[in-house]
Design a protein around this nucleic acid. Structure first.
Lengths: 141, 141
DNA sequence: TTTCTTATTGCAACTTTTTGCAATAATATA
DNA sequence: TATATTATTGCAAAAAGTTGCAATAAGAAA
């Protein structure tokens, strides 16, 4: 029934369990394909699993992010949103119309290397969201 | 008394007013020199201005950020923290010991240009925080 | 100085997110 | 299949952050 079953092995491998709650939440993220806020996830997942609680949604999203199945992002609302994890990427969002596009992580590789050699840090991850005006909104100025 | 008076012209120029609340909050940010959470700002600013409310702290921090006097950052706690605005910069934080260092914005200039030419966007700003292991914590692995 | 305009604040109610803990249930093992 | 282990959930309460609106006060103008 739910394509979300395909995530079971990834959890098992780390010693975690698949549950109806996680299944429902993964299912919602997987099919939406876009960024969802915790309350959007809650509303949608509740249709499949009415007993689901908000507490569990918050904890599960955090858990999925921690384990690489979901990606958290700050998209400028001041609140964290989540999407299903695919390839590693970042976001570029228009301050005017809200249009979003993905920025491939490869574009940051050079910067990562540069930072590592300058600081001695070994980089593991980052929170990156760029803001600007998309080409359409630039015309309308 | 408060060095924060030096911020008055920046507000006036934009048609805003200086108030005891803003003065107290700017003073706290200015002297701490590090990232503070809204509740830390509240606690400290209240010593100067006991009548200050939390609502005002949230609104003022947002206002100062909006007007370039403070800089907001997501430092991995999931919550927004603020520091007084100096030059434009980003942050690099150790996932292990929490040590933070600044990343000069110049380092991102090339990336900005590259993004602009590839996407057609005109970049205005970004939320950027890098995470990794500092050199000390790498040794201890 | 006094008056006027409106930016700003405080209050109270509300929404969002987090936390501790006891109860539950997913899986390994017998 | 039954039992044991412990990851996971739900509940209730707390903490963090937001919003609408009437009252206040900063600064411009008279």
């Amino acid at each position: 029934m739910s394509c979300a079953h395909s995530y079971v092995p990834q959890l098992r491998a780390r010693g975690y369990r698949m549950t109806p709650q996680r299944l429902a939440i993964l299912h919602v993220l997987h099919h939406s394909g876009r960024h969802l806020s915790p309350s959007e996830v809650y509303e949608q997942a509740r249709m499949e699993l009415p007993s689901l609680t908000e507490t569990t949604v918050y904890r599960t999203l955090d858990f999925l992010a921690e384990n690489g199945l979901a990606r958290p992002a700050y998209m400028g609302s001041g609140r964290l949103v989540y999407e299903i994890a695919r390839h590693e990427h970042h976001h570029l969002k228009c301050r005017n119309c809200g249009h979003e596009m993905e920025v491939q992580h490869d574009l940051l590789k050079t910067l990562y290397r540069q930072l590592e050699s300058e600081t001695g840090y070994r980089l593991t991850d980052s929170h990156v969201t760029f803001f600007g005006l998309c080409s359409d909104c630039q015309k309308g100025e």
